[in-house]
Design a protein around this nucleic acid. Structure first.
Lengths: 198, 198
DNA sequence: TTTTATTGATTGAACGTTCAATAAAAAAAT
DNA sequence: ATTTTTTTATTGAACGTTCAATCAATAAAA
């Protein structure tokens, strides 16, 4: 069945298949054969396109992080209001985007999160994204509060977002995105209110 | 070297060795041989005392959860003040206890957390503990706010605690327990203040 | 006919478990 | 107090399984 220009198609198929497999049986039991079966191809193709299993896993994590960044960026560029609150709200909304929160992506993310503790490459990827989230939040908070308060607000909100995310990934029913967004926004309101009272 | 009564000693040695191994190379690369080497015994002993690798991993998770429960219970029983705020404060302090937050226990916890998504037994353990944290928080918040507000406060604080924990486990330097406690308490203050204003 | 994409049997390494052998301590016998 | 026997704890080589990676063979498109 070899047509020309299969590479981008196969790569995407295999990345999707990887998420499906991790969602199904977890990272520990995700074998190249299982991924290949999900994608409807043979196992050997993985080494051909990604150099090996690790290459595919790395590409999958990259995709998830890229999707998240995009989800946030889209919402921030669509803002009419340029206020700090609007920007931070967009960051929250982006982090609880459907494509991120629903199904395979959520469990895959948590699996990589844990895995990144001992795999330098994944750790690097995760760190870059982490820092961007914190730095974005901090920058917006800085527009309405002093440095120290902004720093703490950013760390608190980042922890809240990750915590809601983590708990969502672990509950069998999956994350209730609406409730998570509500709680994150409520916390944001409190942060602003608290500063307003000082 | 067989003395009688080795069982409890070996069991504890192997559980500690398991945490050390997971801290060192991650759950995925934690083999029975590596655990055995850490404990200074042979690999076969693991099957003898725990029925197999899975039994040892389960026992290790049980120990971590028990330690956490104990850390919280000790602080709550030591309270002079019976106020909701004091109880919730004790829960926060217990969750950021040194023995939990420092070193091997932290990474082991996160590893099990991710693993529990696809291992029913671990999931059960994790769920029980989760529910207790939520239920304890909810009960205390109920003493000073209506049901719906209490529910949201409990979910928010639980997410905050887990989020701080997660971020701490992932940063190379480990969790800054002092900062985490500060942020959690600050959030708690806001929750109370927010209700007081309504 | 040439190029490109794909297969799948094979290979070698790594892993968890098992179990007969061993060795030390405890108990019993002298 | 010795020696012998029994019990208990532990070892580590062998076994079967699983997995990722390889590569010669194949088949479709160009």
């Amino acid at each position: 069945m070899p047509k020309v220009g299969m590479e981008p198609i196969r790569r995407q198929q295999l990345i999707n298949a990887t998420m499906a497999a991790i969602d199904e049986v977890g990272l520990a039991e995700t074998t190249v054969m299982r991924i290949a079966r999900h994608a409807g191809v043979s196992a050997g193709i993985i080494s051909h396109y990604f150099g090996g299993k690790d290459g595919l896993l790395e590409a999958t994590m990259r995709q998830i992080l890229t999707d998240l960044t995009t989800a946030v960026a889209v919402r921030r560029h669509a803002l009419e209001d340029n206020s700090p609150r609007a920007h931070i709200g967009a960051i929250i909304e982006g982090n609880f985007d459907r494509t991120q929160v629903t199904g395979p992506a959520a469990k895959t993310w948590l699996a990589f999160w844990a895995s990144s503790m001992h795999k330098p490459m994944l750790q690097r990827l995760q760190n870059v994204n982490d820092r961007r989230l914190y730095s974005n939040l901090c920058h917006q908070f800085r527009r309405v509060m002093p440095r120290l308060e902004a720093r703490n607000a950013a760390r608190g909100l980042a922890a809240m977002i990750d915590g809601l995310w983590l708990r969502g990934a672990l509950t069998p029913e999956g994350l209730d995105a609406e409730e998570a967004r509500f709680l994150a926004h409520a916390y944001l309101d409190q942060l602003f209110a608290h500063y307003g009272c000082q």
